[in-house]
Write a protein that binds this DNA or RNA. Structure first.
Lengths: 344, 344
DNA sequence: ATGAAAGCGCTAACAA
DNA sequence: TTGTTAGCGCTTTCAT
């Protein structure tokens, strides 16, 4: 690999202009009525010299970098990595690259990443927001910067968003407990609580219980800090256990919570589902084969990525997203396994 | 947000040259002996106008995009997402972005991604290679394109590489089985087998058994295709089970294999560790709290990412990597849990 | 049907 | 201590 071949090299070696070469290589040859022979020659030469365009120069010139940014709280969480994977697949198929950032539910980081990604001139942004940054999204909207929210949604900003039916999912879980006569239920939640998925799931769950005239006492409404999930989970469950006031079931509001709850319960030697039943929101592969297997509200994860990228691409291509399309809510379903099925 | 502010805007509004502004903003003011007052003025104006540089233009001009590419087989695998996460953290701290690509163990995809990433002028590449692309890496070496291999290594190409001590890890697993008097052991492997981690683990395991005069019969050397892991796992284990010729233990060569083995065993109603003992290479969080908990050879995953980025950055900065530094092998350790401990 | 030339925003060699 | 200028590789307007 000697020197990098440029458009000019091709043009020179063929004795034609750069314009011509550019046009042909960008498939605008026919549009501009360029001689078929000439086009063939150019294409052949490009191949011969193993030309590949300098994408940075293209991006610089056109203002389109064919790159998108993806910001999630933690790419290590399989929920996000599965979304990322699907987005990546779709993106590459359309010639886009994706820069991935983790924000750790930290607004500052989120804002910073958005800024940096914009200075890198990404064509669009897909974001699972910490949701403390409404102004930022309003600004994105106002400046018509292509973006779509995933998982968590802001109603206010009008940003396109792809999420799931959290309310219904949580209600299904509640009903499943109730159907088995389980009434002493704890809700395992996370702070910050304002996150839309968390609040929707919480509301759905509580309202389904309320319909059955059941209230969750505050000591059973556990709130764990995102950043200290491991230690807090153990501490809080241990305290509860020690107090002797254990619920008969737990609904954990996301996969992380479910996993760490499992871990803590195990350490405390509390048996599932005999001592306590468990349902988690968001399914994971391993839930299917642990002993006992874990019931969960399953989300169409890949589809979230798919729809989000589609919505983003359409914005990038200048399409208007109508109000009705702007807010995608995908259905979930409850997978009942052993952890929520009390032995008779 | 009216129009985007450029260097020229600052220069004009201050009545100085772009050079001056560029120099100051790039902290070369002192080096070039620019008046402190002037520097202050520039900095203040930049802040006032909320200037942020067009990174694409910078990259175009300097040839450095402050972007690196990361290619792994599947970002959805937590082993890789944890590495990615650490790389991302380190990269951002140094002003680098990372573009993530999944190659699905497919050479074509891998080659294609490398090509595209290069046309995007990334400053360097971190790759977990499918290892059927030695020529590609030789070329990277010859052209001095900064890159480091992770997880899987080529001895031939001389590319810097960060991996773990697979041989020792596998030997520890073998010895652990042997110490308990377990001799009927199956090896659960993946194709393509030429992958260095797989072959090293295989060799380590087999050699430890050979020392104890034990050979694994071919029907117990199970090879599952990466792309069809789920279906093949079930099929092969079911066949084995039906044949009545079941081993007393299984060593699974990566986390995916372990997980799907667990799943299949569960479906077949084979109990761990009573019917069969199990150790996996590469630990996962959930191994710690399943029933039974799963023994595993644990890798310093984050450290792989860390070391890899460090090695890459040094290349990008023009440093020579000495031969002794070129090949990093991190230690592993065996975590013994219930799945490998036969009840007496 | 093809070419000349400008310019995207920035950096750096050279001048002053 | 500061400014002038060229040019990175490409696309695109306008001319021919």
């Amino acid at each position: 690999m000697s020197k990098k071949i440029s458009l000019a090299d091709i043009a020179k070696s063929l004795g034609v202009s750069k314009t011509l070469v550019s046009l042909v290589l960008n498939k605008k040859g026919d549009k501009y009525g360029i001689n078929q022979q000439t086009q063939k020659k150019v294409l052949a030469k490009a191949k011969e010299l193993n030309y590949s365009p300098n994408v940075v120069a293209q991006g610089f010139r056109t203002g389109k970098t064919k790159t998108i940014g993806l910001i999630v709280s933690d790419i290590t969480n399989q929920f996000y990595s599965r979304i990322a994977r699907r987005i990546e697949d779709y993106a590459w198929a359309q010639g886009y690259s994706v820069i991935i950032c983790s924000s750790d539910e930290d607004v500052e980081k989120e804002i910073n990443r958005i800024k940096l990604l914009k200075s890198r001139k990404v064509d669009g942004l897909i974001i699972s927001s910490s949701q403390q940054n409404a102004d930022g999204f309003k600004q994105l909207r106002n400046t018509k910067f292509p973006h779509v929210l995933i998982d968590r949604c802001f109603k206010e900003t009008g940003s396109p968003c792809v999420t799931v039916d959290n309310t219904t999912g949580a209600k299904m879980a509640a009903k499943h407990f109730l159907e088995q006569g389980i009434k002493d239920i704890a809700l395992l939640s996370i702070t910050p609580e304002h996150i839309s998925t968390i609040s929707e799931r919480t509301n759905g769950f509580l309202s389904a219980l309320a319909e059955a005239k059941i209230n969750i006492p505050t000591e059973w409404h556990l709130k764990i800090a995102f950043s200290k999930i491991e230690s807090e989970m153990e501490k809080k469950l241990a305290e509860l256990h020690k107090s002797g006031n254990m619920p008969k079931a737990i609904f954990a509001l996301n996969n992380n919570l479910t996993s760490h709850c499992l871990l803590a319960l195990r350490k405390l030697n509390i048996s599932i589902p005999n001592d306590i039943a468990l349902i988690g929101f968001d399914d994971m592969l391993y839930f299917g084969f642990t002993q006992p297997s874990i019931s969960a509200v399953s989300q169409p994860v890949e589809e979230i990525g798919e729809k989000a990228f589609d919505l983003l691409l359409r914005q990038i291509n200048g399409e208007m997203i109508t109000k009705s399309e702007r807010f995608v809510r995908l259905p979930v379903n409850l997978i009942i396994r052993e952890s929520s099925t009390k032995p008779q």
